[in-house]
Simulated assay, not measured.
Amino acid sequence: MRRILTTLAILATLSLAGCATDQRNDALTTTLNAYASTVRWGDFATAQQFVDPKVREAHPVSTLEMARYQQYKVSGYDEGKGPTPHGEFEVTQVVQINLVNVNTQSERTVTDHQTWHYDAEGKHWWLVSGLPDISRQ
């Protein structure tokens, strides 16, 4: 009888852990899709809301930087192979973003190395690497 109760307790614990993992993975998928959609529309002001609040506070986006984002239209957003897990609460992703300068109509590609961290307390994924750096050539 004791063995059966121990086995049931272990199974219950594993199933709860599995549910937490499923919820975390679902939240990651939802967050990455919403962020990608926001960037595809070129809405970098809203995309900034995906950035970890501590990172936003430490590295605020200047008015000049926001004006630079508005100078471009996004013509492509390619996640490549998708997110790569680094431990239980962090994933990285390399994204190719195609940008068209609205003034010159020239297109270029920016590689965005994203790092996402899961806040277990808030049950939320945050972008800790910040918005893509579009100032580099």
Rank of each mutant, 00 (worst) to 15 (best):
Ala58Asp: 06
Gly122Arg: 13
Lys73Ala: 06
Ala17Trp: 04
Ser75Phe: 08
Gln105Leu: 15
Asn103Glu: 12
Thr29Lys: 07
Ser15Thr: 15
Asp26Pro: 07
Asp119Glu: 11
Thr31Trp: 11
Leu99Ala: 11
Glu121Gln: 11
Asp52Met: 01
His113Gln: 13
Pro83Met: 12
Ala36Asp: 00
Glu121Lys: 11
Ile134Met: 14
Val94Arg: 08
Glu65Cys: 05
Ala34Trp: 04
Asp133Met: 02
Arg2Ile: 14
Gly42Ile: 15
Leu11Glu: 00
Thr21Phe: 04
His124Val: 11
Gln105Lys: 10
Val94Cys: 03
Trp116Met: 11
Leu127Trp: 13
Thr104Gly: 04
Val55Glu: 04
Trp126Leu: 09
Ala36Cys: 01
Gly80Phe: 00
Glu79Tyr: 09
Gly87Ala: 04
Pro60Gln: 06
Val51Cys: 01
Trp116Val: 13
Asn33Pro: 04
His117Asp: 04
Glu57Leu: 03
Val94Ser: 09
Asp26His: 05
Ile134Trp: 04
Ala12Leu: 15
Asp52Phe: 02
Gln48Ala: 12
Leu131Arg: 03
Gln96Arg: 14
Ala67Ile: 04
Thr46Tyr: 02
Lys73Cys: 00
Lys54Gly: 12
Val39Cys: 06
Trp116Thr: 15
Thr38Met: 00
Asn98Tyr: 03
Thr109Glu: 13
Trp125Ala: 13
Gln93His: 05
Gln93Met: 11
Ile97Asn: 03
Val95Thr: 10
